[in-house]
């Protein structure tokens, strides 16, 4: 398993729990997840925090099934079954990888509107690692 230490995980809480991104002070592009150097202009390391909406659209996705899950997600796959992992294009521009939860895998489609919410990602050292997953955005309408 890709070990992520507790302090290392803790530092990423703003992005994992509440979708805090960064806006480049030089080129204005939004980076998510936050980077040391802007992914778009490749020069600036000056950012301001930006609360993202958590909304976006499925850009592409794969279904992870039996045996295909990384070790930290193997238990999830065994208990919960096949799950979709998507690249989502966020409303603010960046494309991010995340699981799609609370949806029948057969109903996941490219272009489908999604939004983030807090889920258990995995457990390591008996510590539950929470973070965002995407869920269908139409559910509340």
């Amino acid at each position: 398993m890709a070990h992520v230490s507790v302090p290392m995980y803790w530092r990423t809480i703003p992005q994992r729990y509440k979708m805090i991104g960064q806006k480049c002070k030089k080129c204005g592009h939004v980076n998510f997840p936050p980077k040391g150097v802007c992914k778009y202009c490749s020069v600036s390391s000056e950012f301001e925090d930006l609360q993202l909406s958590g909304r976006g659209k499925v850009h592409t996705f794969v279904l992870i099934s039996s045996g295909g899950a990384p070790p930290e997600f193997a238990e999830q796959e065994k208990a919960g079954g096949m799950y979709p992992v998507a690249i989502v294009e966020l409303a603010e521009g960046p494309k991010v990888i995340g699981q799609i939860a609370d949806a029948d895998p057969k109903t996941v489609k490219i272009g489908m509107p999604v939004k983030t919410e807090l889920r258990k990602i995995y457990t390591e050292e008996d510590v539950i690692r929470y973070g965002f997953k995407f869920v269908p955005a139409t559910e509340e309408k």
Binding site: Q76, A79, G80, Q99, A101, R119, K120
Partner: peptide, 9 residues
């Protein structure tokens, strides 16, 4: 609850 849900989420 689903596998990735709990009372805190």
């Amino acid at each position: 609850m689903g596998f990735d849900e709990d009372v805190l989420t």
